[in-house]
Design a protein around this nucleic acid. Structure first.
Lengths: 236, 236
DNA sequence: GACGTCTAATGGTTAGACCTTTATACATGA
DNA sequence: TCATGTATAAAGGTCTAACCATTAGACGTC
């Protein structure tokens, strides 16, 4: 029925007001908030209190502070930085393992592949095939590991777009950002692995083009399963 | 080669020192840091600067402030709260629709059910059955809608625990947090719906107990599919 | 036009005071 | 004896009024 009455600290109210303004788009990325000495008048708090609010907003990744003339609090694009930082802490304290991330990711990407198969249009298939071409080129001697990985990434994110659900895309982008360090560190950079990888994606695109949801899911699982060993073994 | 010289603000140094102490286990969960007036002497900064550092640590979820005698900054277990909050910001910012949330959730919970079926132990089943009993009681006349929903919630979160992957749990918590307002608003409060709901979960528990992954997934999809109409129609 | 120098805007920091919340000890009274 | 009220002090929350540090831009000198 009731919930615990929340501790009311004035700076929290300031945080909420500014946060709402950002999330509702009343101020947008790049906008400069008034200088501290004006904000303090607007909210009718002391400068110390106002600054505590700014620290919280900064930590949330919602604003960025610049020094000097013309400096101040600038609205940032809401991004994945705070999530990434929080996850990094969890990983460092062994509250989550890279293997858990990888398990979740495989599942997530498989769902995305399924949705993409259900919803992809003709143009979408062309875009995916472009990535495959790009990847094939990067695989030719002398093969370019970085370029293959970059193409693979964009392939996944594009599939996320095709899936047509913002929630999947948001979660996908966040997981990608956090799992990549492990890929870079543990996945071998040999050509065989990458060629197998390329083969997986070709099959996947075929499945998506055919609208075969189950096959798309299977392909994606096979594709990511290829790396399970590396991540799982190195975790914990 | 080089990177941008980082802006050096004194409170950031304080944040780092305390954060390191926590991450390295020199202070552990429940420990109380000295009062502000002592900390400010230790770090040789003003109280204002110290308090800005405490706000950052608080936002990172590393400490918690309690008021009054014996109050102060207490070390917290590193947890998923900041990750959840950051994700919630992203979802809010990306203006995800209730329908998108519901689609993702069905998928996520289904995966969780599958993992739970694979990993549940004997005790886990007993706990789930307790929730079912609780729900059955709340369904008897006069039936208590709030109690049923509360039990249902805890059922889902417990299933998330049983799934044994912290990443799923964190994402699940985030989605729950964001989808609940819509459930409260749009889902009908009649007894028939809730009784059907109860039936779904009974079948689900049977599947989990039997370790039947596919059936557990199917049950969960059926369970949440029950609400698709309400969320989807009212969304956007 | 290239290079210093000055200036003002603006965040960063400090000191010291007072207000508010809360656990505890103690007193009061049924 | 036990419940209830009250005083006390520890500790966070807030405020005021300065001064310090950084930086863009104006201005001037060579």
């Amino acid at each position: 029925m009731f919930e615990k009455a929340k501790q009311n600290r004035m700076f929290q109210d300031v945080v909420e007001q500014i946060q709402d303004a950002i999330l509702e788009g009343r101020v947008v990325q790049g906008d400069k908030l008034p200088p501290e000495r004006e904000l303090k008048e607007i909210f009718d708090v002391s400068r110390g209190t106002l600054r505590e609010a700014l620290r919280v907003l900064e930590q949330k990744g919602l604003i960025e502070i610049r020094l000097g003339v013309g400096g101040g609090a600038f609205v940032r694009e809401v991004g994945t930085a705070p999530v990434t930082e929080g996850l990094a802490l969890l990983l460092r304290r062994n509250k989550v393992s890279p293997a858990e991330l990888a398990e979740f990711r495989k599942d997530l990407e498989a769902s995305i592949a399924g949705l993409a198969a259900r919803r992809a249009g003709f143009d979408d298939i062309l875009i995916l095939k472009d990535f495959l071409k790009e990847m094939a080129q990067a695989l030719e001697e002398p093969f370019d590991w970085e370029a293959v990985i970059a193409a693979d990434n964009r392939f996944h994110l594009t599939l996320g777009e095709i899936a047509g659900n913002q929630v999947y895309r948001t979660i996908q982008a966040t997981i990608h950002e956090n799992i990549h360090p492990y890929f870079d560190r543990y996945v071998p950079r040999d050509k065989d692995t990458l060629e197998g990888n390329y083969g997986d994606l070709c099959l996947l695109v075929d499945a998506v083009a055919a609208g075969d949801e189950k096959e798309a899911i299977r392909c994606m699982q096979a594709h990511l399963g290829r790396y399970d060993g590396y991540i799982v073994d190195s975790g914990k």
